[in-house]
């Protein structure tokens, strides 16, 4: 009994230490893309073609890139980083993409290029209906619980792992709305995995609202969703993968 008491107390002690999480800093994510799984999940294309693709290309290596989430108690920003480690001597242009969330004012300022055009989504922050499961795992030193939902527009199954010991609502890409920081997101069982690698505390980090670029089309959240639905309809009619013109 005595041992148990000590054990529990130790746990609580550790928990309190762990719970003193950084207020400001950076989370570095690794983003892995598995093209064959992406293709395999596009259910409106010929099944025979998708199976052929999986059979021939299923063994090809994953493509990996990096991203960073910079945060303060008031705001956070998510950016992709051009990384040349694997492909020395050749560089692809990375498409414009960043996510800015003003927590104090509950507003978004998300800039992204979709089907060749640059868009800005400016609205209040909105979240999907997460379902909470009981699965636990460790990501970047934090014990995380899983949550999931189905993106009905793109027909993607999203599984997120949020930190139980870091009760802050933020995450990579446009994911959020969970009782803890999202440290990993898995789209369509491994087609794309965004996973936290390192977490750096830095009290000096500043996240300011980005400057408005010229010639950018501004959308509300509902206009953005309408745009996605229309584009998905066209892709379905043409039987082409939607992620050629749209982020996965």
């Amino acid at each position: 009994m005595k041992i148990k008491t000590i054990l529990v107390s130790t746990f609580i002690f550790i928990a309190v230490i762990v719970l003193s999480q950084p207020n400001s800093g950076k989370i570095n994510y690794n983003v892995r893309h598995k093209w064959t799984k992406k293709i395999a999940a596009v259910d409106y294309m010929s099944k025979a073609k998708r199976e052929h693709y999986e059979y021939v290309w299923g063994n090809s290596p994953e493509y990996e890139e990096k991203s960073v989430l910079t945060f303060t108690p008031e705001a956070y920003r998510y950016d992709e980083i051009e990384d040349q480690t694997e492909y020395v001597g050749y560089s692809w242009r990375s498409t414009e993409y960043f996510i800015f969330r003003d927590i104090t004012n509950n507003s978004t300022y998300d800039v992204m290029r979709m089907f060749n055009k640059l868009y800005l989504i400016e609205d209040s922050i909105q979240y999907p209906n997460w379902k909470i499961l009981n699965d636990l795992k460790e990501v970047a030193g934090h014990i995380c619980m899983s949550a999931s939902y189905v993106d009905t527009i793109k027909n993607n199954k999203i599984t997120a792992w949020f930190a139980l010991d870091w009760p802050v609502n933020m995450g990579p890409e446009r994911f959020g709305g969970l009782p803890g920081v999202i440290l990993e997101v898995d789209i369509n069982n491994g087609a794309m995995i965004i996973s936290a690698d390192t977490i750096i505390e830095d009290a000096n980090v500043k996240v300011e609202k980005p400057e408005h670029k010229k010639r950018i089309k501004t959308l509300t959240e509902s206009e953005y969703i309408k745009l996605l639905i229309d584009y998905m309809e066209e892709c379905k009619a043409e039987e082409r993968p939607y992620f050629w013109g749209l982020r996965y």
């Binding site: 379902k131 949550a147 969970l178």
Partner: peptide, 24 residues
Amino acid sequence: SLGETVPAATVMLLTSSDSTLVNY
């Protein structure tokens, strides 16, 4: 189980039909 308080636990409200997160 020893009667000690548990601070900083995450408490969530879910729908009973499909465990959708309502509030926390």
